[in-house]
């Protein structure tokens, strides 16, 4: 049985690194008594994966965990909730047909909200954002594993707008194309130390349209 579980990670939990989250999840699910499925081989591991890495220090209200269980767990959310540390909350779960590919490889975009912009930062963004969006090519140096490289970041920004006192971003995320919020903000010379950045949603793509992971399952398989 395969499930996708949506959860939030905020407060002090923001400071738990991405790699440590898998171990944390294994412990949560063990405490909750979820009948996990394990990999074969000499040192079996539970079949767990996270949809997209989240930078340390960033809150998220749209983290997704993919897990496999030996049997159906109808009360998954209810079972997991009491085993969660403070700062994590399960926001929903869907049973996923087994022929759906691994979530990690399906993620295409993520929404971010950048808050606590100072008046000067706000003005700067108001002036520069539309000209940025009008361009087709914006070269920017970004940090990658192997060092820095210069890439065209414009196609990696699906939308960027100022709304409700915050900067709302939709950026390419995942294994095919990826832009970090930090790299986007560098384009506008925004010092992000004082900003509050959070991830709000992840998207998959199907026939040119974007769907949240849960929508993707509902629209593909409900009929």
């Amino acid at each position: 049985m395969k499930y996708w579980l949506r959860y939030s990670k905020s407060g002090l939990m923001r400071f738990v690194g991405h790699l440590d989250m898998l171990q944390t999840w294994e412990r949560i699910l063990r405490r909750a008594g979820i009948p996990l499925t394990f990999s074969q081989g000499f040192s079996p591991r539970p079949l767990l994966s996270l949809a997209a890495p989240l930078p340390v220090g960033m809150s998220s209200y749209a983290e997704y965990l993919e897990l496999e269980t030996r049997e159906e767990v109808p009360a998954l959310t209810k079972m997991v909730t009491p085993a969660l540390p403070q700062g994590m909350e399960v926001l929903g779960a869907v049973r996923v047909p087994t022929d759906v590919k691994a979530l990690m490889g399906l993620i295409r975009y993520a929404d971010y909200k950048v808050e606590d912009l100072g008046p000067e930062q706000w003005t700067c963004l108001e002036q520069q954002l539309s000209s940025f969006l009008d361009k087709e090519v914006v070269l920017q140096e970004v940090k990658r594993k192997g060092g820095a490289s210069t890439i065209n970041i414009r196609p990696l920004v699906a939308s960027a707008r100022l709304e409700d006192g915050a900067l709302q971003l939709r950026l390419a995320t995942g294994s095919t194309a990826n832009l970090r919020v930090e790299d986007f903000l560098n384009q506008f010379s925004l010092a992000h130390a004082n900003l509050t950045i959070s991830r709000r949603e992840l998207y998959l793509e199907k026939e040119g349209q974007l769907f949240t992971p849960f929508e993707y399952i509902t629209c593909s398989y409900s009929r």
């Binding site: 407060g11 002090l12 939990m13 400071f15 738990v16 690194g17 440590d20 412990r27 405490r31 340390v56 220090g57 540390p85 403070q86 700062g87 130390a193």
Partner: peptide, 20 residues
């Protein structure tokens, strides 16, 4: 406090909200 946690390596050393 949370401001400092952004600046240090392995901030999870200093949280105090571990399970149990």
């Amino acid at each position: 406090m949370q401001e400092i946690l952004r600046l240090v390596e392995k901030p999870a050393r200093y949280l105090g909200n571990e399970w149990n």
